[in-house]
C-alpha cells in the first residue's frame, strides 16, 4: 500500500533542509525550515494511514507539532525582524 504522500513529505523535508543551507536571506531560511518541518508532519501522518483512517495518536502528534512549530516560527520571525531592525 504505497501512497505518494510519504514521499512528498520526505521530498519536502530534504528540500527544506537544502533551502535552509543554500538561501542567504534569513526569512528564506525560516520558510525553508517551515517546509522542512511540514515535510516531517506530512510524512508522519500519511505514513500512519491504515485502512484509509489516520492513526489518532499520529494525528495528535502532528497537531501538537504544528502548534509548536507555529510558536517557534513566530518567535523566529520576530527575531529576524529584530536583527534587521537593529541594523538600522
Amino acid at each position: 500500500m504505497l501512497s505518494l504522500y510519504p514521499f512528498v513529505g520526505l521530498a519536502l523535508f530534504v528540500l527544506g533542509l537544502l533551502g535552509f543551507i543554500l538561501k542567504e536571506s534569513l526569512v528564506h531560511k525560516l520558510i525553508s525550515l517551515n517546509i522542512f518541518l511540514s515535510g516531517i508532519f506530512l510524512f508522519l501522518v500519511s505514513q500512519s494511514l491504515s485502512y484509509e483512517k489516520a492513526d489518532s495518536v499520529a494525528t495528535a502528534l502532528v497537531l501538537t507539532g504544528l502548534v509548536v512549530t507555529l510558536g517557534v516560527s513566530a518567535f523566529g520571525l520576530m527575531l529576524i525582524r529584530a536583527s534587521y531592525g537593529a541594523k538600522r
Binding site: M1, Q47, S48, L49, S50, D55, S56, V57
Partner: peptide, 8 residues
C-alpha cells in the same frame, strides 16, 4: 514494514 496502529 507497514505501520501497525497499536496505540490507535
Amino acid at each position: 514494514p507497514p505501520f501497525s496502529p497499536k496505540l490507535d
